[in-house]
Amino acid sequence: MSATLRHVGWVLRGNPVTAAAAAGATLLLFVAFFAPWLAPYDPIASNVPNALQPPSAAHWAGTDQLGRDVFSRILYGTRVDLAIAFSAVSLSFAIGAVVGSFCGYVGGALDRVVGRLVDVLMAFPLFVLAMALVAALGNSIENIILATAFINLPFYIRFARAEVNVRRNLGWVEAARASGDSDLSVVLRFLLPNVLPAMAVQISLNLGWAILNAAGLSFIGLGITPPTPEWGIMVAEGARFITSGHWWLVAFPGLALMLSVLCFNLLGDGLRDILDPRMRT
């Protein structure tokens, strides 16, 4: 255990960008968990007389058209967006890694059929596909998660397939079979753990993308409905006031969105180093 911590410490020391990204991601998770305790105001309670106040000591990010505290709404919004992103990415990772690994290991007809299906899926403009899915399934958080997971799936399938394919004829895979492992157990117990480090990078990049995707869907009015505090909705609602000079309505949620996407993207490289056993000495 202490060796693991030492190794994580070594990676982070040698890589200040990763350390900053990891700190940012930790902060995001912390905020998401403790939003009710951290937020200075109720994110939904309107206070019309106090509407459209610029940032001040009382309202760090100003107030919106209904007088709600923008800072509190951003804190609560972290919850919604991260929850969607994490669930969607876990779902597509779990399904994509298993399906992709089997395609890469078994090859043949299965691989060809799945491969072509993935090609078809990737030929769609993915955001439009997500829009169509949410529109068809109905406006709910579950459906946004499903749609986001679905459009991420092809990347995981391809990735896992390629990573498994280069390893399937290595000695240790044959050795596992000679040791009495079935094909199923070779894939699940040998190949999957070995492609994990490479996939961690993909997961982290994908998290950022999934956040953006969820916010994008609510920005255009699909998925989450007001008054739920969510970054995409806040940007959408704030956009109406941008011409009248109320910049803080858009700028702060936009900044939160940008920083969180940046965090997860930068974290990817560091994660790969942490998870790869060969990097340890």
């Binding site: 290595l170 000695g171 050795a175 070995n194």
Partner: peptide
């Protein structure tokens, strides 16, 4: 049972 050619390739890195 079998012993493989490349000792590096024949052991699971994990």
């Amino acid at each position: 049972q079998i012993v493989f050619q490349d000792p590096t390739d024949s052991l699971n890195p994990r």
